[in-house]
Nucleic acid binder design. Structure first.
Lengths: 330, 330
DNA sequence: CTGAAAGCGCTTACAG
DNA sequence: CTGAAAGCGCTTACAG
């Protein structure tokens, strides 16, 4: 275990002042003669000196830490987005700290306060609910640019990038109706997430357009992020309310649970009565099912770009970017 | 945009010294009279004061940042492990910064130096290769406890938790041999990752035990972490070397690619000639295939616990924990 | 029980 | 071109 050499170690060994070392390390703001510069660089190498970012941050009152607050990293979609956000920001010299909220607003609040305590200079968030928390207000109040990714808080003044959830769910539902389904079950994953609410809205709109009355029982919400209980919930639901003639699974985890449930019960399904969001594995099925394919990498890319813009001082009005998803029918 | 109140703002408003405020905030090391304490707490609340962790870290020479270095977060297994590591550490008051190495040793080195610069107090790493990098040495040299998760660097003195890759791959291969396969193709994901090397070793050992000569062409390595090119590589391989009578896919991404390739070519497969690692979706297939189910949550749990122990000052000899995987035949 | 003061490792305006 | 010095917001040994 070794104490890290500091700037003054370098200065001493090199026979210059700490200021000079700083100028060399930071390439400014003052010029240093080439000869001194080389000597300092040599000494830095010799000592394997590395600047202490903490001290620098304290002085400059600015970190290079970005917060990423998401409901889970264990889902493929979120993992993909996290990965993109992360990688792009790293390339731009930022470090990302992630918080997992498990769809829990309390956890989210704590996470946001943690972000503030860590002095993040920017935040990308996929919020658990449509409510603005005090913690989020605090961040905003301290001037931290905030970008919503995949979900937003309606009416909140910030940049946002989302799939057009209403539209794509409407299309998926319309597709099922065209296949002859009249009694469609929509399985959602949250009552609070804007994306979930929008998908249910899209579902309802499609029914309405076709003049199909909405039976409130036909929207099942399974608030289990890991999808572990989704299968039971689904089977319990069809036990209680009978078998629907079409099923719309608004996440791929729900899709897996539903397919497993159907299999286990020996209930047939086909491309005529089932649509699943984002299921990469759908093509592997003997009878592939239609998939709503979100472009989550585009969503993540756009979110990062918006944030980078804000970090560069872009002061233009807040943007709300909508990314289309496509219904892929096999 | 607002300047954050500092400890001295609180002290001033409250009519006490900054030291006293510190004692209240930190509950020590000195006692503060209950009355003063309450007054300070009131003021803190009033100003919505939050300690600046950067300043604290500079003074205490200790952050609460843990580094997590993994080859990708976009794969389900890694996302799961990252999620567990992350959540447990958060509960213990740590913050996690993640680096994605994309299986690239250069990126990994940079990431490790970044971790050092951020003054992480602990590191969990799933290394891209079996070589010890200079950057890793530097971290160790500075006393940062390191835990290997899922992969390790053989001979490196550190804690490690891994699936028993040799054993489970041997079992999976033995299973295929028992089903009558003699010409088995093993598709691996890396030439450098210890887990990949171990799986190929297990494959070879099983062949050897049964007296089957190893054809070097029957180990195909697809070094594409996302698996995008795995399907082409697989099809090109069977084009060149003919169809194997058994296939062992050492990741679920490879499994998806292979199944897609087989489907597209109209080549039949079954539980008799295919084993896939970790494929949760395998049960959804008309004809489910056998799966090697790793207990990655156990791997991650154990890794975090080891690290937490080290952070608590545990000085016992380095541990190497092996977690069994199970072959699930449908 | 409370406070004055030094110092963590940097940056940068100010002087020379 | 180079340096002495103040100060970022904390912690804590030392005095009182």
């Amino acid at each position: 275990m070794q104490r890290r050499p500091t700037r003054s170690d370098v200065a001493k060994l090199c026979g210059v002042s700490v200021a000079t070392v700083s100028y060399v390390v930071n390439n400014g703001p003052k010029k240093v003669s080439e000869e001194t510069r080389q000597r300092v660089l040599q000494t830095i190498k010799k000592l394997d000196y590395r600047p202490n970012l903490i001290a620098r941050s304290l002085k400059t009152r600015r970190t290079h830490i970005i917060g990423l607050v998401i409901p889970t990293i264990a889902s493929p979609g979120m993992a993909l987005m996290a990965s993109i956000v992360h990688e792009t920001l790293l390339q731009h010299g930022y470090v990302v700290i992630i918080a997992n909220t498990r769809e829990d607003c309390g956890v989210e609040s704590n996470a946001l306060d943690l972000m503030l305590a860590q002095s993040v200079v920017g935040l990308i968030i996929c919020p658990a609910s449509c409510q603005e928390s005090e913690a989020l207000k605090r961040l905003k109040h301290h001037g931290v640019p905030i970008v919503f990714m995949d979900r937003h808080i309606p009416g909140y003044q910030a940049d946002a990038v989302m799939t057009d959830n209403i539209k794509c769910t409407r299309q998926a539902t319309a597709y099922l109706i065209r296949q002859g389904c009249h009694h469609i079950l929509c399985i959602s994953f949250s009552r609070r997430a804007s994306s979930a609410i929008d998908r249910v809205d899209g579902f309802k709109q499609a029914l309405q357009t076709r003049g199909i009355a909405l039976d409130p029982e036909m929207v099942l919400v399974v608030e289990d992020p890991t999808g572990m209980r989704a299968e039971q919930a689904f089977l319990a639901h069809i036990d209680a309310f009978g078998l629907p003639d079409g099923i719309l699974c608004t996440t791929q985890e729900i899709g897996i649970s539903v397919l497993r449930g159907l299999r286990r019960q020996g209930i047939p399904f086909s491309r005529q009565n089932l649509v699943v969001f984002d299921a990469e594995w759908a093509k592997l099925l003997e009878l592939p099912v239609p998939v709503v394919e979100q472009r989550l990498s585009n969503v993540a890319d756009a979110a990062v770009q918006l944030l980078l813009g804000r970090l560069d001082g872009n002061e233009s009005p807040f943007q709300m970017i909508s990314v289309d998803a496509q219904l892929i029918v096999p």
